[in-house]
Amino acid sequence: MIARVAAVLTLLLAPSMVSAQAMLVDLSKPRVAITSAFKGADILVFGALDAPGDVVITVSGTPVRQTVLRKERILGLWVTGGRQTFDEVPTYYAVAATRPLSQILPAEGVAGVAITLSERLASIRPVDPGRRRPDDMERFRDGLVDAKRRELLYPAEVGPVNLVAGRLFRAELQFPSRLPVGDYQITAYVVRDGQTVSAVSRPLIVSKEGFSAELFDAARDQSIGYGVLAISMALLIGWGAGWVGRRL
């Protein structure tokens, strides 16, 4: 870690190289391994600017096709009544910034750049939009955000980015324990006078690893073998326990 910061600093101090890039960014780890003991992860994003400015960092999970379910009351029972599918929904989305976004960015946002969650979600597309009234569609959109927020996948708060001497920045990104797998993109923007002057992206790969990941994959990819294994295990232990039980 310290070696990496030192490397960034060395790059920063070499004037010929810095002129090519307004910002340097790196992550403390390029991957997050979800093992059976996974309780969330902290990833450090750090870097340097060529001149003082504000830094905004967005973290976006893989865009997927996500179905949202709505419970409705039928004969007194709460049952799944409505469903709406959206395309291009990020599995995870979080923002961090050096100052509150309202002080850094214009209220109407920066043209062509999605930074806040609502700007990012402007690009999600409902499947079969003609089948639902616009106000009902809006309720499903809000329901999607609420459901994601409950699972801590769309944090409502903008996280902190620490700026040292106006040039060096670091941000601790905290990921929750129920993190969807996929290729995440971490993008750092330099903002000056309400304009993004530079943007650098780094990929972050979130994948399941270890024994439980192998079992999960086997249940899907080798489901016949998995089923036979489950049955044999039950037969063997059941028979063994009966055998022991009769001799006790």
């Binding site: 997927v64 949202v68 419970k71 499903f140 459901a147």
Partner: peptide, 18 residues
């Protein structure tokens, strides 16, 4: 549990990776 108003009306369903 079937008759009580659920904590959340909206929930996440299936995900399809593109």
């Amino acid at each position: 549990e079937l008759f009580a108003r659920p904590d959340a009306i909206y929930s996440l369903g299936a995900i399809v990776r593109m």
